[in-house]
């Protein structure tokens, strides 16, 4: 069930990605992104396929799978889909819901403009991607 506008704003304000935004900015984000729900077992992003978006998890859990093998799980406050959009390449993993999932969605072409309008969100995202790079590099060595 969709959240009421004040509930949605409260939820967003509690997520670290949006932690540096003012209340009016969070309201703007809530307005700009669309709320969506997916049942358990659904593939939201498909490895190798174009046509995607940026998703922020409000509730629920997804598995990141590459060639059918689970690599990671994401939950409340995590986000996905941004890598393909930033790189203009198809997703390299499937993203599959492990239970009912409640997300905010932004269309791919809108992401870069959105980040430019909200530099603090871009900076939080930058830190998350930097962390992934560190983890990926450790893995390799």
């Amino acid at each position: 069930m969709p959240l009421s506008q004040p509930e949605l704003v409260n939820t967003l304000a509690s997520l670290s990605l949006f932690a540096d935004l003012s209340r009016p900015q969070v309201e703007q984000v809530a307005h700009r992104m669309s709320e969506e729900s997916y049942p358990e077992g659904q593939r939201i992003l498909r490895q190798g396929f174009t046509g995607s978006g940026f998703y922020v998890i409000l509730e629920g859990e997804v598995a990141i799978r590459i060639d059918g093998e689970e690599r990671a799980r994401l939950g409340r406050g995590d986000f996905f889909g941004e890598m393909s959009i930033l790189l203009g390449e198809p997703p390299v993993a499937d993203v599959v819901t492990l239970r009912q999932l409640h997300v905010l969605h932004l269309g791919g072409p809108e992401l870069e403009g959105f980040l430019r309008e909200h530099p603090s969100v871009m900076f939080r995202m930058l830190r998350t991607i930097a962390l992934r790079l560190r983890n990926a590099s450790r893995w390799r060595s």
């Binding site: 890598m83 930033l86 790189l87 390449e89 980040l115 930058l126 991607i129 930097a130 790079l133």
Partner: peptide, 10 residues
């Protein structure tokens, strides 16, 4: 910078 880091993660 975010694009460059994303490219390197991939």
């Amino acid at each position: 910078l975010i694009r460059e880091l994303a490219r390197r993660v991939r």
